[in-house]
């Protein structure tokens, strides 16, 4: 025996289960902090460490400084992640390539 689907009785409503426009968009709490950044992103603003300290120069011989701009695999970290300004990112990228030529920094670090 076939019985009436209970959903059929509720189908008179417009739009089914869709929320009404302007209705509840979920409880996101207080978003005032993110308003300036399009409601996205959290964390602090990154600063170019070579701009922060004018005394420090980009130096291809300084392995300990350059390793902060290289991944574990040996790839150059983009400036959107490292926080470098464009000028210093160019200098850092060049210094890394020069250090690689002298085997101070690896071209590629194989893992596993």
């Amino acid at each position: 025996m076939s019985t009436m689907n209970p959903q059929g009785e509720r189908s008179g409503g417009k739009g089914g289960g869709r929320p009404a426009p302007g209705g509840d968009r979920g409880d996101r709490g207080d978003m005032k902090d993110d308003e300036g950044r399009g409601g996205r992103g959290f964390g602090r603003r990154k600063v170019c460490r070579y701009c922060a300290d004018r005394n420090v120069k980009v130096d291809f011989k300084d392995q300990s400084a350059l390793k902060y701009f290289v991944t574990e695999r040996g790839k150059i970290i983009p400036r959107r992640i490292s926080g470098n300004c464009a000028k210093h990112q160019r200098q850092v990228a060049k210094a890394i390539k020069q250090a690689r030529g002298l085997a101070l920094i690896p071209y590629l670090m194989l893992q596993g």
Partner: peptide, 14 residues
Amino acid sequence: YDGGDEGGFEDNSF
């Protein structure tokens, strides 16, 4: 050739 300034990178604290 650091020009005699302090000039040390902040992370060379080995």
